[in-house]
Design a protein around this nucleic acid. Structure first.
Lengths: 210, 210, 210, 210
DNA sequence: TATGAATGAGTGTTCATTCAT
DNA sequence: AATGAATGAACACTCATTCAT
């Protein structure tokens, strides 16, 4: 008994966990609103109602909180996706469910849409943080690839995973720009359907990978 | 005769045009390599072998050269796309040609892939430059929408244009990350085919827009 | 008891107050030595033995510290002047005492002589800070006008206040140039007398204002 | 005949003289409007409708055109003053005429009021240009001192010259700020009268200099 | 532990001055 | 002689990070 993660921690430890979480939430919001560059560490601590120095008790640097957010976000996204796959009735539902889970994740946490978009750009640069982020992202895609493996024919599972991720994020980001998050939310089913068809088309196509 | 634009300019004017072009090229390269934030104005002028002050004779600010690059890039991309549509034999070839033109543009100028990715992120932020960039981008998509109008059924032309842009940039950016530009170049035909099928699937789907 | 302003502040607060004061003092000195343009923010922080960034924790900008100095200086000058007027035996002593207080103020803080001279020039320019400074200065002169009102006949109190300020600053600045502060200090009584006679002449003249 | 300065110059030389004069005029105007620091060399050449490089054909530096303007201005002011003294009927009119000439000079060239005010500040600074300007100014005051010598008793002629200059510039500058140049122009006679009385009071006082 | 005052390297930008044409 | 493109030293100001309390 009493071995739940939360309960087993001392009051102090629970407090720390809460502060850590608040910093992550606030950072996610600000990175999405102002961009990872324009959002200042002080903006974060201020919105979190903490002293500026406190930030560095929880994260080594601004770069590191970005990594932490990406890790947390992709991990949560993966969890939701895996749950959606487990809930599947027939293999044919795997891909639409994966896509649905992704879309729903970004509808639930729209900040991640822009944060991850920025991070995908960052990853490609010849810049310090990039390498670590690349590893995190690659791992995520591998896991997605594994999930869809059962339903793809000769197509590369990795290519399909990439297509799912790329199409979903691409489409949602564009629509976010022109219609806002509410616009996307209203068209949720339509988007999932369209994305599913787009991805299915790839599979039928035989082998996008020669 | 002999009054080609170039020839009709004085030596000084030609020199200025060349400097302007060099700054744009160098900036595009550096923005793509280091990112629009980490690339410093001085990096640009240094690589262009110019004094730092010279930059400001040609562009009002760092932000403005980003706008200029986006405008130039999207304009070139549109021109290539329009040419590809004009070269079409049957209406059925319009979409594959549009996609092919986009893919080929980014293969020819891979720097734009990352630059435009970053700019799409920037556009969404509550930040100064954003508005101007949004207008430029929206205009571009409208023009693409017009080009594909003949071949879409009841689907929204704008949605199709968005899908083409989102899928193409999304897919190419992801692949760039994992395979490098040469990897994409080798798979060019395959990618165009896959993208075409993905987009065609949308059209057949009936109406992604309610 | 024991709740004097200083004592009631925490150590940190007292330290901050001291830093603020030191920055103002150093700035006043440097603005007077090198001029408000040639004195750099870094000169100020260096002489104050502080990091450059610290300046901006205390003042929004270089312009703002000028305003702050002017406000502080004129406020102190006014206080000294009011005290001198209160100490007056007969109304006839009001103007000489006002002049004496002004002269003594500038002898005590000679930096203000040149700083305010520069600021009076700045105020007249079509430049950002000007407006705020004009308001501060106008307020000061109004207060001086009020002080001298009892002893002027039909002459405009504002004109007399202006004459007092203009003559005093004008004369002291010129003499500062040719004789240095020590030269002025030695001639203190003579200058006060001369200035008093000059101002009294205006009053007897009837009405400098038509 | 034909030996007038103008006529004896070649066309080129006359053209150069005109350009030189235009630069001085424009500089005076801009230094007065925007301040000697905020007015840029390029502002001057632009308003003079000349190339930027041309400026340096006529003046060694921005500092030097300031010196040139001061020299020209004080020289003209002295000439006007000497003429006014020569036109005097009785010695008693010397000082009012000197003051009148000064006031009229500044009414005719109001730009000089602010330019010279700024320069008087500049002169006092521990800065490059200062020394040269001090010499020019000192010379001017000596000449004024000589003019008033006949009418002063035991008072130092230099002190009287300083008082004349200080009071006049001080009063006019203050009034310029609060009433504008037109306000001063309307009150011209009143001001001259007031200034005269103020200065006369000094003379009667016996010896402002111990 | 939490804080926020202090820091200073680093940035975009300006502008007096030069010099090739 | 006149020009204006090019220059780069210099500056105001920012902000991630540190550290004494």
């Amino acid at each position: 008994m009493g071995t739940s993660t939360e309960a087993s921690l001392s009051r102090v430890e629970r407090r720390k966990a809460r502060t850590n979480k608040r910093l992550l939430e606030v950072a996610r919001q600000l990175f999405s609103e102002k961009g990872i560059y324009w959002a200042k560490v002080e903006d974060i601590t201020e919105l979190a109602d903490l002293g500026k120095g406190t930030f560095y008790k929880y994260f080594d640097s601004k770069e590191q909180i970005i990594s932490a957010l990406v890790e947390e976000g992709l991990s949560e996204l993966l969890a939701k996706t895996e749950a959606a796959v487990l809930a599947v009735s027939t293999d044919g539902r795997i891909i639409p469910n994966v896509i649905g889970a992704r879309v729903d994740f970004f509808l639930a946490y729209p900040d991640y849409l822009l944060l991850l978009h920025q991070v995908r750009g960052l990853m490609q640069l010849q810049v310090g943080v990039a390498e670590e982020l690349r590893v995190i992202y690659a791992k995520h895609l591998s896991r997605i690839a594994k999930l869809v493996k059962p339903v793809i024919g000769s197509t590369s599972a990795h290519d399909v995973a990439v297509a799912i991720a790329a199409y979903t994020s691409g489409l949602m980001t564009y629509h976010l720009l022109f219609e806002g998050i509410e616009g996307i939310r209203r068209r949720r089913n339509e988007l999932v359907l369209a994305l599913d068809q787009s991805v299915q088309a790839l599979l039928k196509a035989g082998r996008p990978r020669a």
